[in-house]
Design a protein around this nucleic acid. Structure first.
Lengths: 102, 102
DNA sequence: CTTATATGTCGAAATATTTGGTTATGAAGT
DNA sequence: ACTTCATAACCAAATATTTCGACATATAAG
């Protein structure tokens, strides 16, 4: 039994937490699945296909962005979002690596 | 833009949700990191290294078990838990595969 | 400079999760 | 059968998250 993690988790796992929390919500999964390969979508487009209000979508987009699942850039009046594949992959690989040691 | 997921997510993603929600919580991460390779731990041992009450630990163990992150078996008076590597890996691979199409 | 549009932020209500005490269940020992 | 021990289930309180409308900001258009 490993007692090292009684009170905390390694720093790397804090980032993993965010990614996993972000992907653990069905509304956020639906937002992600809306993106076609390489596509960038603005908030209005995402709201359009969502069943949630604009501010709820904005809230979920923020969680996804802070977690590093999405990246965003403002172009004119619009804010475009796209998938941060690299960062999501890193979180998945980290857990895969942990599994391999088990 | 893919509009297929406006109201629901593919069935496979529902299982993924559970695994990701389970792994997105720091208390549950700490429980997982307590397991050494191949080890089986009973509830008492996990409570012992946790900062939470017995009933809170039991609650988190149930979430981990229902999500398929842990498996359990009652032996005598004790219930032993161990990592369900196969199931966690499947969820991770499913998301990895999604990333590859993106 | 005023107006319209896109998005973010705030605050309060609704909802969900977490927590720990108490009670119930089930297995083992006496 | 009675007691003890380990754990699960139940329940209510505490806490966190989600939600949406109202307001704020920023950019562009007229």
């Amino acid at each position: 039994m490993n007692r090292d993690y009684t009170k905390a988790v390694p720093a790397a796992w804090k980032n993993i937490s965010q990614v996993f929390t972000a992907l653990g919500d069905e509304h956020r999964q639906r937002i992600l699945l809306t993106f076609e390969p390489g596509e960038r979508l603005n908030v209005g487009q995402i709201v359009e296909v969502s069943t949630l209000s604009r501010s709820a979508v904005s809230h979920h987009l923020k969680i996804l962005r802070v977690a590093g699942v999405l990246e965003s850039e403002k172009i004119g009046k619009e804010v475009y979002f796209w998938l941060n594949k690299k960062n999501v992959k890193e979180a998945l690989v980290a857990v895969m690596d942990y599994l391999k040691t088990q």
